[in-house]
Design a protein around this nucleic acid. Structure first.
Lengths: 210, 210
DNA sequence: TAGTAGATGATAATATTTTCACAAACTTTG
DNA sequence: CAAAGTTTGTGAAAATATTATCATCTACTA
């Protein structure tokens, strides 16, 4: 279970997991890499290679047993237990993420929110308690939350990130355009919507038809 | 200007552009690849390589002229003119994107929104007119909008996508977990928040300290 | 004006990722 | 039960991407 798999593979795992969940719900029992490939739009050889990093999960001449695979992925992706996540910044995007039901198709939920505005602090929004952002470090530590989502202005995100790290954060999801500096043992995932949109537009203009 | 650059490079361009804008605003006139590297957290050799695909933009022994580079990137990234974008689906995430000021650091703006609910249709939300989603194809064609953002339920996104493509869409930003089927000349950018979060958690658990 | 520090651009080396293609292993069918 | 038909797992090749190195050029100093 501690095999070092390529990063590119790791990034595809959640997609595989979700597709398998769908198959499971549809009571489909087996799946071949080629059918799989079509659904998730990844080459079938890539899928087979990805899966093979974890051992021989399929049967030749048959395919993959959906439930087997799913159970396996559940463990790999930590979906066999609940992961609590904190959300910092309840602006528009923060609010939207609060409503966004991560828990619907993953075993992740936002269990604490933080904001700077008095009218928010100590209320409960969408079932999630809102704390003063001043108490970020302390609350993360107390509640043993290791994953933090930042939807705050870019100007303050580095300071808050530092506090989160002091509070024990190991993973940061950063919606600002500022690149964060963190210790080596902390992982940052950047989600920059403006960048994504610009990249899309760039590809439209320069890679027509590929 | 029609040079074929690697995809990996293309994905970094918006980040470079944004950083350069910041330098420009701070009235900084020159920048070296090593300083650049530190700010955007990309190896300096990679930055030099990326930039050199477009020709010799820097001066040896000196660095890069910020304003030069910025002008260059403006053209490359289509930031020298406004790009109008449509937003389909005004749920929580859609509303948040409507408020999200893409235009603040890019020359992109949402100029039309679409929803299925009567109480939304024909209103103006955050300065953007809201149309009936039934008229998606027609409106895209009339308004010559080529980029569409989908924040709708996964169950309906493929149908809407087909209509958008019929309406002339060339780029799709897809916030659902469904992988879209589109003609080869249409580009899809998937932004799957649940996946990103799961990937982050996976890396925390399995790649500690790298 | 000569010497030096500092920086690019280009090339080479390395690393990572994807794809091809096929033997081996399994299922299904008659 | 044997033959036919599938589909995996994987070695090898190809394609992409990153990093290292260095000759060469610029700016600056004295």
């Amino acid at each position: 279970m501690d095999i070092k798999i390529p990063r590119a593979t790791a990034k595809r795992l959640p997609m595989y997991y979700r597709y398998l969940s769908g198959l499971h719900d549809a009571k489909i029992k087996r799946i071949s890499s080629s059918t799989f490939a079509e659904a998730v739009q990844v080459d079938s050889a890539t899928i087979r290679r990805d899966l093979s990093y974890f051992g021989a999960l399929g049967k030749r001449g048959y395919g993959y047993e959906v439930d087997n695979l799913l159970d396996f992925f559940k463990k790999i992706l930590n979906q066999d237990h609940l992961t609590n996540v904190a959300l910092v910044g309840l602006g528009n995007l923060g609010q939207a993420l609060l409503h966004f039901n991560f828990h619907k198709d993953s075993n992740v939920r936002i269990s604490a929110a933080f904001d700077i505005h008095d009218d928010m602090i100590n209320t409960v929004q969408s079932g999630v308690p809102v704390y003063d952002v001043k108490d970020l470090q302390e609350q993360l530590r107390d509640q043993q939350i290791e994953v933090v989502i930042f939807t705050v202005p870019a100007t303050v995100v580095q300071d808050l990130c530092d506090e989160a790290v002091n509070g024990g954060a190991k993973g940061i999801m950063n919606f600002t355009s500022k690149r964060l500096s963190v210790p080596k043992n902390v992982r940052v995932q950047n989600v920059d919507l403006t960048n994504e949109l610009q990249t899309l537009i760039y590809f439209i203009e320069h890679y027509e038809g590929e």
